[in-house]
Nucleic acid binder design. Structure first.
Lengths: 194, 194
DNA sequence: TATTTTGATGTGTTATTGCAGATCAATGGT
DNA sequence: ACCATTGATCTGCAATAACACATCAAAATA
């Protein structure tokens, strides 16, 4: 469609992929037909604000009006937060599979132990940088080991296991990763006219 | 309409009023019927993204998708930039009148001198905080003085005059205004879970 | 290789926007 | 008192988003 919406469409698609969701999965979350999502991502429709908003919500995003003056700052912030740190397709699939398994498990297991496990999983999948399929497969196997027994003890062991993996990742990241955003990276007052 | 769009509508209205534009003026700028703008501001329609976008553009705003994580930071920034610093109705009218006069003048006058004057006027009307009707009336009188003569010299005098007024305002603001955002006012990583 | 999943595309129907143009009460300006 | 402007509201009409399905080729998975 118009140039103005092009970026929004791209952002939606990027956000969905960053979350490792298929169009159909997203369509379920946002209660919108898959066909429609496809059209939207291809910028083939001029959709309604409510639709855009609900899809954005499903992707943990918010639709906002930001003053031109604040644009550079806002863009910088969203970039630094959303920055999709190159999680390859295989990792995404692995993450998706793990999520499924946990969801399936949720019907049987419950309680503080399980919630703890869920948190650990959320933690490790949120690291994103340094996430590679091997690690994720370990995570998956760990969870599979619960599925058979289902005991509280197994849940705890898995949680601890995953925490350990997460720490390994964090350590790896700390050693040879981008040290830190060196500059503030945004400022107000873009000096828009003399 | 839906709760989600309510804030957008409110922001549009606020932005328009902050610019001292009437619905009809905005409708001209955005090529959208006034009746439609009224409905939009009252959140009575679920409008298309292109419409929202074009109106936002006319108001110097941009439609953006921002990740939940970045929301607090972004809101803080946009607030600090857009912060409608209580320009009362009378001042708004005064500003509008000044703009009209300048537009009218633009048909006769032109050149670097006139552009300079225009910039001065933009500057002073953009200060917004500390703008009171008295000052604005002085500005208007100054411009009126050009209208009669129309000489280049008069234009220059007016520009200088307005610059002086602007400096007074800036000084006033610096002395007993909010000193500075004392805290960063925003941070990333809203610690949204565990 | 066989199966499943994914994203893109098509069809028909319904609901609603968006536009045009007019009206109106309230407010403000002269 | 008179006139202009503002914002809200109504009409009809055309365009099209949104939906529910269905289908399909390509890619991923088994």
């Amino acid at each position: 469609m118009s140039y103005a919406t092009e970026e929004l469409a791209a952002r939606l698609k990027a956000a969905r992929e960053a979350k490792g969701l298929s169009q159909r999965e997203l369509s379920a979350l946002a209660s919108v037909p898959q066909s429609h999502i496809s059209k939207i991502e291809n910028n083939a429709v001029d959709l309604r604000v409510s639709s855009l908003s609900s899809i954005a919500h499903a992707l943990d995003m918010e639709l906002m009006l930001v003053p031109r003056k604040a644009l550079p700052a806002v863009q910088s912030i969203t970039r630094s937060v959303a920055s999709v740190p190159v999680v390859n397709a295989e990792s995404k699939r692995e993450i998706a599979r793990i999520r499924e398994m946990v969801d399936a498990l949720a019907s049987r297991a419950s309680g503080a132990n399980f919630e703890n496990l869920q948190r650990r999983i959320r933690e490790i999948t949120q690291i994103q940088s340094q996430l590679d399929p091997e690690i994720l497969q370990k995570v998956r196997r760990t969870i599979e080991s619960i599925e058979s027994s289902g005991s509280n003890e197994a849940v705890n062991r898995a949680a601890e296991n995953i925490r350990s993996l997460r720490n390994q990742l964090a350590h790896r990241a700390a050693s040879h990763e981008t040290p830190r955003p060196p500059r503030p990276a945004y400022r107000l007052e873009e000096d828009q006219d003399g």
